[in-house]
Design a protein around this nucleic acid. Structure first.
Lengths: 152, 152
DNA sequence: GATAAATGTTAGGTTAGACTAAAATGTTCC
DNA sequence: GGAACATTTTAGTCTAACCTAACATTTATC
């Protein structure tokens, strides 16, 4: 499904994800909010929104608020899921602090493939299984991963 | 160390890494080889080489071959190491096939931070430990990761 | 309801990175 | 040693993504 989102750039994915997140928190999403969330000036946001509109991922009338279409919602949710899974991996497995895990997820979410992510998902699940079964691995991992910041 | 490589772009990192690899295989590295390795036209390679030269990472005279400087070699080796560690993770932990693991490493190596990579390194090491200690986790991981391509 | 403030858009410019076409240089081979 | 070919560079164009400055519209306030 998810139809014909013809290969969004990393930048456009970022805008879409920002709109998605803002939508979950705010009654209406404005250009200004998007610009602030993505960290660009309003004209840049306007341009991106126009492109997203062309691709049918958002609806937007001049000077009005921005709304995800059904397709846009689907694509955004998928991007967001990528983000969250990566974040979980960094935080729960590599034990990065929340802020770093978040930043790293942001940086990588646009490059990783669906297929790889599926594997990562399974891997995270297996970590869960392993913990429940008391193999003791998780403890070993955590110790080794967390030990000593500096040396190689 | 590694001195003042002032934030290479992903693109320039790619060129540098290509030169590094070619250097290990060929007597001399030519613009054409670099272009082919990176998958761009020769003029693009020329432009990139000029930038790398400006940054003191390669030496190159008009119409001659390209050589890494000591600093260039150090930076390239570091980029290459990032690549290899990521590839190892994808291949050995997520069990992606060699080609996919390679492609994924290529895609992500420019975005991941040193700090995160250090954690990944420790994690890979802990997998090794865990395997040697016969916790049985590894088997669980592999089964779960490898099982069923399609479903969630 | 006019005007000030906030918000959004347009216009125009910059940079990075790619491309093609064409010129310059180097190499080979008769 | 010069012609044909290969390689490299230069010149110029394109696109994506950002920016600032200026303009347009909406919202708020008196």
């Amino acid at each position: 499904m998810i139809a014909e989102a013809p290969d969004l750039t990393a930048s456009l994915e970022n805008y879409l994800e920002a709109i998605f997140r803002l939508s979950q928190v705010r009654r209406v999403v404005r250009v200004r909010d998007i610009a602030k969330a993505v960290g660009v000036t309003p004209p840049s946001a306007t341009g991106a929104i126009q492109q997203l509109k062309q691709r049918g991922l958002v609806s937007h009338e001049r000077y009005e608020d921005v709304l995800l279409t059904d397709e846009g919602e689907a694509v955004a949710a998928e991007v967001h899921q990528r983000h969250e899974e990566l974040r979980a991996f960094f935080e729960d497995v590599l034990l990065l602090d929340a802020e770093t895990a978040e930043a790293e997820a942001c940086a990588l979410e646009h490059s990783i493939s669906q297929h790889t992510l599926e594997r990562l998902r399974r891997f995270l699940a297996s970590i869960g299984q392993c913990g429940r079964r008391q193999h003791g691995c998780i403890r070993v991992f955590r110790q080794m991963v967390a030990d000593g910041e500096g040396a190689g």
